[in-house]
Structures are given as C-alpha cells and as structure tokens.
Amino acid sequence: MLSRTADNLYWLARYMERADYLARVVEVTRRMANLPRAYGGVATEWDSALISSGAEEAFAATGLEPNETNVTCFLTFDENNPSSIRNCIELARTNARAVRTALTHEMWEAINGGWLEIRRFDARRNGQGMLDAEDLTQFLELVKEVSVQFDGSAYRTMLRNDAYWFSRLGMYVERADNTARILDVKYHVLLPDVETIGGSLDYFQWTSVLRAVSALTAYHWVYRQSIKPWLIADLLILKAEMPRSLLSCYENISHFLDLIGKAYGRQGLAQRQARQLYARLEHARIEEIFQTGLHEFITAFIDDNNRIGGRIAEQYLV
C-alpha cells in the first residue's frame, strides 16, 4: 500500500487515541482539583495535566496562568495547541478524508459524526472559550464515545490486512505513550517509601491515576485488595490482561509488526526493537523496577517507545 496511506491510517488512529486520553486527563484533573485540600487536592493539578498531556511547553508559550479555565480551554478547544482535543479530532478527520477508500463506511461515520458533534460544542463556548460545567462533562463523554466507536468500528469492519495493522500500530504506540506519561507525572505518589496507613492523602492521587487510564474497576478485579501504589504500577506496566498496560501495548505492537513483516516477507529494525522491548517488559518484575528506580524506568520506556515509532515511520510510512 502507499506509504502515505499507511501514514494516514497510523496517525488517524493515534489522534483518536490521544483525544480519548486527553478527555480522561481533563476529567480526572477536574475531579482532583475540586477536592478539598485535606483530601489531597492541590493547586498544581492543572500543571500535572499539562505535563501528562505533553503540552507544558506549548502552554508556557501562551504566558497564561495554569489555572482550571486556561488549561481546560487549552487542552480541549485551543486552536494553537496542536494537541488539543479539537485539533486531534480535526487531524484525525483530515487523515481519514485523505484515505477514505481505505476506511470502511462505519469508521468514517464514527469520525465524521464525532467531528460534527464536537463542532456543535465548539460553537457553545463562552467568551473565555469555556464550556459551562454541564456541557464540558458532556463534551468529554462524547470524545470518549467517539473514540470507542471508531475503535470498535475498525475492529468490526476492517479487512485484516496491512491497513488494519498500521491503524492498530498507531493506536498502541499512542496508548503506550499515554500510559507511560501518566505514570511519569505521578510516579512520586506511587513510590513505596510514602507511608500508606489507611486513609492516606495520596489515596485520591492513586485512584486518579487509575481513572485516567480507565482502570479503577479493573484494579479491584485483578488484585482484590485496597489501592496500593506499587500494585498500580504493576497493573499499568506489567499486567498482560490490562489493555492499557505497557506490556499489553507492546504485546500488540510486536504482534502487528510481525504480521506486517510476514506479509511483506521482510523484517526490520522496528520488529527487532519492538520484540526486545516486549521481552524486557515480559520478564520484568515490579520489585526490580522500584529498586532500579520507577522514574528512570518510565523515562527510558518513553524514549524507547518514541524510537520505535520513529523506526516504524522510517521503515514504512515515508
């Protein structure tokens, strides 16, 4: 297939996934920022939101104060933020339009329908660029729905060929990045040397991490015990059954890269590096990760994931 087509499919999936993640970050941050101080609510929540969505530099360039209004606007609708939710959906749609023959009707409907809805919300913003609280809640729900619809329609309707594989690769590379970012921002509250006698102030911080990757319920099913920070890290990094864990993402990335390699009769650096990273995650144990440093581990992972994204691009997309 054309490299440009593969590139469009890959980025289409990445932008849809990113929009979903951003919606969750904004949701969780609203929740945290509104908690009384005594329960761990801190004024820096909106800074964290910017960092975990990779937008801190772009926001700093605006010179605005990182408060609820400014950051929410920036992450949801701001045209000058290349990664605002609105821009993500817009870019997803532009990519989709360019490869419409490679998409199924259902996928297009999911994207285009979502885009039209989002434009409706866009038109309802007030003078400061904010939606009112009720609208914002609905808007964030909508974004998550659109992303699920897109993902589901791709899963149900696409032929299982390279078009599908590149689209899945985009989704998992983005997802791995998102999970790693939220861990990176919150790693300090997950460190076990924090005392965790019941009712810790950090409880709400921990659950917020889980919420951001929609894993709060999953946590209880997997561990059947109260929230422990190292178990959160274990869930999000090493649990194969957790669909947003780094391990699960890499299981998928190497799986789809292998399918592509097999279909094309050729393997490259992307396959090799993805397989290595997958093996490393598969054999890692959470205790060791904490011993060598959670922060170091996450930072290294983000770099590796970026590098593999680059390899995929070099090998197939340009």
Binding site: M1, L2, S3, F166, I260, R266, L317, V318
Partner: peptide, 9 residues
C-alpha cells in the same frame, strides 16, 4: 527516468 510510488514495501 522511471516513475515509482512510495509504498510500505
């Protein structure tokens, strides 16, 4: 003097 398209292969 030959035209090529850039493909994933």
């Amino acid at each position: 003097d030959v035209v090529y398209m850039r493909t994933t292969e």
